[in-house]
Nucleic acid binder design. Sequence first.
DNA 1: CACATTGGCGCC
DNA 2: AGGGCGCCAATGTG
Length: 554
Amino acid sequence: MPYLLVLDDPARPGDVVLQEADDAGQPGARHIVGVDDLPAAVARHERERPRWVWDDTARRYPPLLTAGVRVERCHDLRLCHAILRRSTLTAGSALAQAGPGPWDQPRTEQPLAVAGSLFDELPDPATTPGPDPAAELRAQLDAVAGAAAPGRLRLLLAAESTGALIAAEMQHDGMPWSAPTHDALLTQLLGPRPTGGARPARLEELAVQVRDALGQPHVHLDSPPELLRGLRAAGIDVGSTRTWELREHDHPAIGPLLAYKKLARLLSANGWAWMDAWVRDGRFHPDYVPGGVVTGRWATSGGGALQLPAAVRGAVRADPGWRLVVADAAQLEPRVLAAMSGDGAMAAAARHTDLYEGVVDAGIVATRKDAKYAMLGAIYGATTGASAVLMPRLTTAYPRAVALVEQAARAGERGEQVSTWLGRSSPVPGEAWQARRRAAATEGGGSEDAAVARRQGRDWGRFTRNFVVQGTAAEWALCWMASLRRRLRDIPGRPHLVFFLHDEVMVHSPGAVADEVAQAVRDAALEAGRLLFGDTPVEFALQVAVVDSYDQAK
DNA sequence: CACATTGGCGCC
DNA sequence: AGGGCGCCAATGTG
């Protein structure tokens, strides 16, 4: 019984059908379960280690977690559908060729409501034909079986689905967050928490200094247009109120203004209001959105977990007797590029714990900074500045790696799709993009429209160039995290993942097993490299720290 | 009034 | 520099 589908029972709303299915998705035994008995039934079947198949992990899994039930494996039909619909590897499948359907809808907003609550006005599932998960599973398995590289797609779908489980588990468990420490940090930087709508004391002081220096007692610093007029009226010749532009001017208002902007940002993004909204019972519960970015990276839809500023990381504190194991992959994207392209010279540089130092040691560029700029320029598609100047050296030293990203860029400029290592493909450019390109091609190259078309072509080329690397790095990271999750289950004391950020993970671990967790993190990185790239010579170096609070890492 | 867009900036 | 995001306040639009 490889698959166990979780279906709403059309005959009895509120009941759930657990439908067994074989490798090809062909149905077997059915078990009908009342919604209240579902967690116990899932726990019972979990002993047989099925792959749970359901429409949407974000909807099905949270109630199970609340009931204390966890599952090892799942197949998230909605996430996998999105991958298979777009992948060029499955373009010939029935699934890809059908018109848009219910499985193309975005994630549902809320976890599954309890029966008989708010949603009585929704269409009755007994009378409206809903999406059929069993049929969808078969269509997905067919599409994979008929694909050019089924093994890669299977790994991608498993990693994506495990990511969805992890996202739900991390949201459920939360990240250990000390509200008192956070409050102390804010108080130190901004002054005590004001009551009512007042501005914190430090911010008010700075605002007064800025207005005095500008000679404008009433200018409103939070309005960019008004501030811009104020700056220009004071003789500061800026075109915008951007920090980097302000820094180029020497005027008594600039210092306090930069300080004001920094603190105002902290207050609005991660101040007391944020703490009230997102931290409860000593845990930060962000809303992760697996697959929320076209490249396969995760997004968040609340709490801003993907942009926790350095200034508040001290508030992330392990519970007494616990530690935080914080690990990030060093220069992940260049390493991924080296592995994808099979570039032996770049793989040699990657044997250095710091890949950029490896590039310097090989005599390609003079300094670590140059190596970093050149490498990021290759991956992002730099066209100007120091990065573009360094590109020829990189092309000579690492021809296969550079050729891979250049090919991705050229394909994008032609409007073609590109794909990650495991087979996630980029979107097709929009109709307006195509139309501009066709128009420019027919009217010749000299017109203004043709220039616009060329520029949009290069823009899309930069996107596809980055897509193949960023997307493959996201796949490596998902495999890393999935492998780590499995290893954590074998370590006593329930160490658990509490944070994930593109190339970084955090585990909340009992102090006694923290070193064991750190080793599991390293072993998982090795396994991720093997899962994706087989016996590649590229090493995926990690920085691992066992700390009491997040600001102590790095 | 609600909603969408923009400027600016945080993260990788 | 250059790719990918989300969030806030202010501002623009229906």
